[in-house]
Design a protein around this nucleic acid. Sequence first.
DNA 1: ATTCTAACA
DNA 2: TGTTAGGA
Length: 127
Amino acid sequence: MAEKELQRSKSVLPIGTVMKLTDLTARQIRYYEEQELVIPQRTDGNRRMYSLNDIDKLLEIKDYLDDGINMAGIKAIYAQQKKRADDMKNESLTDSDVRRILHDEFLNISGFEPNSGPSLHSQRPLK
DNA sequence: ATTCTAACA
DNA sequence: TGTTAGGA
């Protein structure tokens, strides 16, 4: 069943197809790459080739944008998502630690609304 | 015909 | 983000 994941990971779609599938402009798609949100594979003459997983990621990003979250916020979300994945590997964490982390993440995400500017507040809401 | 990078009347 | 110039 891991074969399907391999297929979804195969980068075979040129940016033109991705544009049609996601309704995003080439400018946006390339910009998100600069923000390190979706890094497509390159081929022959330096052309971007995306995978189905990349498409999903882009659609996901588009949803976050619609919900009024900015680049910084989206980056934060994925950064936290990665942080979360790392935590799963550390059995050394206690339930209390995990809950503190999740609570911390929640506060940070809510701080990335459109108008709420770069006021990247909250850090240690030690209770 | 498509996509790429860089740059901004 | 849009758009365009100049290449590949």
